[in-house]
Design a protein around this nucleic acid. Structure first.
Lengths: 228, 228
DNA sequence: TGGGTGAAAAGTATATAAATTATGTCCTAA
DNA sequence: TTAGGACATAATTTATATACTTTTCACCCA
């Protein structure tokens, strides 16, 4: 099971297993609400208990893991309400970060956006089974959205955006949008790029909002999965 | 130096030392940028290295501590720019949370606000030296602001607000506002309470903004310490 | 059925060992 | 003489193994 990821130079086992755990939670390999016993994780990742605990505590602060004193750890549960809350917060935070980015707009920003968009549109979104999202697309997608906000100077907002992204990505992976919707994403991303290149801040914010929250109809039903 | 705080039933040493560390960082006992060697902390708090590391990693996710692989931990540094960023983010997040709270306004909310305000206004802000803020006021102040937002249902925004509060409180403690400014706080808080009781959302948001960011003159100089 | 008991499982903390980073000295070369 | 680099040593961080505590759960008895 364990990916072949290798411990990089200068990194600690704790950081390595932190990345692995976050990844497995976000991709849904570790299920929401699932109990995370140290013994099973120790075996799964082939590391000692100490780095494991350290990684789990780190994840608990970003709410991907729930830690309870004397009772161990479990994957954070999911719910339609929590999903709606995450998406709403993400919309607010990313809008703020985008407006912040517009204040420092320059050609480098445009360049990063164009490069990330180029990669994104040339990366397949669905795996051969048509139901799961590929890892490559997931990475390209994240890089694209980070490029969009990369001119922003507010490290605090960017840190929050980062946290929220993991949660949003988890919901997306747990319930991937239908293929038809997936194809609409291309034009949504493209429109966003064009609005930014044209320095149309209001348009860009509006498009980002729609992109995150989906259309009005979907917003009313928090159980539905809006596009990403 | 160590407070007489005692380990509660059901709590772990790790959680206890986490609270102590956060407290010592926020109150400025542990200085910004200061190196946190495990040996010195082990001695200071009289706990083993394992719970210490777990606590430090938790604090690193909320950016109060910087953790670097193989190089240990240090207290997060401060700067006028970071301070301005924290205050701006706090203003944004708390405004969003306040608007969220207004959606669920009810008499219980009013009651919590009145009770918290009553305690706050009857708690001394400055210690006998006139230069440091008392612990009691700090707690009452935090409780008051949490009461203001307590009707909000967005757990995500409230979580961010919580993180930001610690950072803001640290800056406040590192450079306490002058006594004259401190006395103006009473009326600022009171006006906020009145606006909420009157269900005047726009007024409340405006007052909260001014409360967090201070007056226009102070905003121009990020080195200045606006009121809280 | 319901509650207590005890064994097993799981979490927590310490001490120890291993690996990495930082420090300081000495030597060489300009 | 001094700047720079290599080496050895000390300090520190990281990881493991082990001991200890708490929780969980199945079982038994009332």
């Amino acid at each position: 099971m364990a990916a072949t990821a290798v411990l990089e130079e200068g990194k600690t086992l704790g950081s390595w297993v932190y990345d692995r755990l976050r990844d497995d939670i976000v991709t849904g390999v570790l299920k929401p609400g699932q109990r995370l016993t140290l013994d099973s994780l120790k075996e799964r990742y082939a590391v000692g208990i100490t780095p494991l605990r350290e990684a789990l505590y780190r994840l608990s602060t970003s709410l991907l893991v729930i830690a309870e004193d004397q009772r161990g750890f479990r994957v954070a549960p999911v719910s339609p309400e929590h999903r709606a809350d995450i998406m709403a917060a993400r919309h607010h935070i990313e809008t703020l970060a985008l407006r912040n980015a517009f204040q420092y707009a320059d050609l480098d920003w445009d360049g990063r956006i164009l490069a990330a968009f180029h990669r994104l549109k040339n990366t397949a979104m669905y795996a051969s089974d048509d139901a799961t999202i590929t890892r490559e697309w997931e990475i390209a997608h994240r890089d694209f959205h980070q490029a969009i906000l990369s001119a922003a100077k507010s490290t605090t907002l960017l840190h929050f955006q980062n946290m929220l992204w993991d949660h949003a990505a988890r919901y997306r992976n747990l319930n991937p949008p239908p293929r038809i919707k997936g194809e609409a994403l291309y034009s949504e991303h493209e429109a966003l790029v064009n609005a930014i290149l044209a320095r149309d801040e209001e348009m860009a914010c509006m498009l980002l909002r729609r992109h995150i929250l989906g259309t009005a109809g979907q917003m009313l039903d928090p159980a539905k999965t809006p596009a990403e």
